[in-house]
Simulated scan of single mutants.
Amino acid sequence: MPDGPLDLGLVLGPLRRGPADPTFRATADGSVWRTSRTPTGPGTLRVGTYGGEVFSEAWGPGAEWLLDRLPELLGAADAPDVFVPRHRVVALAQHRRPGLRLTCTGRVLESLIPSVLEQKVTTDEAYRAWRLLVGRFGEPAPGPAGAGDRPMWVMPAPRTWALIPSWEWHRAGVDDKRASTILRAVRVAGRLEQTVEMAPAEAQARLEVVPGVGPWTSAEVVQRSHGAPDAVTVGDLHLPGIVGWALAGDRHADDAVMLRLLEPYAGQRHRAARLILLSGKVPARRAPKMPRMDIGTL
């Protein structure tokens, strides 16, 4: 397991797609439950900490795989000690969040599909689509998480995604462009899952061969699947302004300015951006939120 402080919420939080994500749940005792479609089948993992020790349980055909991969999931392969803050705001955020580590799931599609759903729409719309599609076409989570009033679900298998009718995508609020991107991705699911054996930059290049997957989406994937510390997200609506404001007082920064400001963190730009987001130093909102998209007009 990772040495030093460990904050489960910070480490595993990026895997949660909204408060009602059917594949992720945080409970009052501090435990995190998550489901995954592993190479050996669906599984449910429960992980928590007590007295500085990590405890875990797993259920389903994928249980052994999930337990074997637990150290990497909790950031054991991460190296936060090599990070050197170059700005006061980053240094303070790192000091206040010593339990931050970058998770590494070792699975690609479970991050790729929800990231595609988040393209060019509000997060609420994307979270709703993920919740509806997983709940309708996934399968109940193995173990106790799959029962009760709020059962958890395992995301659909690639073939199941490929067979979802067009009207079900529309019912979930997913336009044809995003649905088509997901359909193209699941047809080459095996090739995409193989990218976990590649360096993050090489993995991004292979992901971007799929039409509809660009640098924004591929970065969002390898941040989770690979624990990639340098995979900074470009093409985001808000991140450049947040980074620009925190590091230079420039709320109108674009991607080029953001990348220039993050140059001192080469090799660790994603970690630096996460710390900036955790610092809470964001510009006051002046523009309205992105409007909800009506796919009926597309």
Rank of each mutant, 00 (worst) to 15 (best):
Gly190Gln: 10
Trp161Asn: 02
Pro39Arg: 10
Ala219Gly: 06
Asp149Lys: 12
Ala20Met: 06
Trp169Thr: 04
Val186Ile: 11
Pro211Ser: 11
Ala201Asp: 14
Gly190Tyr: 15
Leu237Ala: 09
Lys281Glu: 10
Leu112Pro: 03
Val154Trp: 11
Arg285Lys: 13
Lys289Glu: 13
Pro39Glu: 13
Gly173Ile: 12
Ala147Phe: 12
Val210Glu: 09
Ile182Asp: 08
Glu197Thr: 13
Cys104Asp: 07
Ala199Asp: 14
Pro5Cys: 03
Ser279Asp: 00
His238Phe: 04
Ala287Pro: 00
Ala20Gly: 02
Leu109Tyr: 10
Pro283Gly: 14
Arg191Met: 12
Leu133Thr: 12
Leu207Gly: 00
Glu197Tyr: 02
Leu277Ile: 02
Ala58Ser: 08
Leu102Val: 05
Val232Glu: 01
Asp176Ile: 04
Pro5Ile: 03
Gly13Asp: 02
Thr49Ile: 09
Ala141Phe: 08
Phe137Leu: 11
Pro42Ile: 07
Glu57Thr: 09
Glu125Gln: 15
Met258Ser: 04
Gly41Lys: 09
Gly106His: 06
Leu12Trp: 01
Pro283Met: 10
Ala272Leu: 07
Val186Lys: 10
Lys120Phe: 13
Pro22His: 08
Ala273Asn: 02
Trp216Ala: 05
Ala126Pro: 15
Ser111Asn: 11
Ile113Asn: 04
Thr297Gly: 07
Leu262Arg: 01
Ala79Gly: 08
Thr23Met: 07
Pro114Val: 12
Met198Ile: 01
Gly60His: 06
Arg69Met: 05
Cys104Thr: 07
Arg274Pro: 00
Arg17Ser: 08
Gly143Trp: 09
Glu110Met: 08
Trp245Gln: 06
Val188Glu: 10
Val234Ser: 02
Pro240Cys: 06
Arg136Glu: 13
Glu110Ile: 05
His87Ser: 12
Arg178Met: 12
Met290Ile: 02
Glu72Ala: 15
Leu73His: 13
Arg285Gly: 03
Leu261Glu: 11
Arg285His: 04
Pro288Arg: 15
Arg206Gly: 01
Gly75Trp: 06
Arg101Pro: 07
Leu70Thr: 06
Ala63Pro: 09
Trp169Pro: 02
Ile276Glu: 05
Leu109Cys: 06
Thr49Asp: 01
Arg86Phe: 07
Ala179Tyr: 09
Ala205Cys: 03
Thr40Leu: 13
Gly241Ala: 10
Ala79Trp: 13
Gly146Arg: 11
Gly135His: 01
Glu168His: 13
Ala172Arg: 10
Arg69Ile: 01
Val186Glu: 10
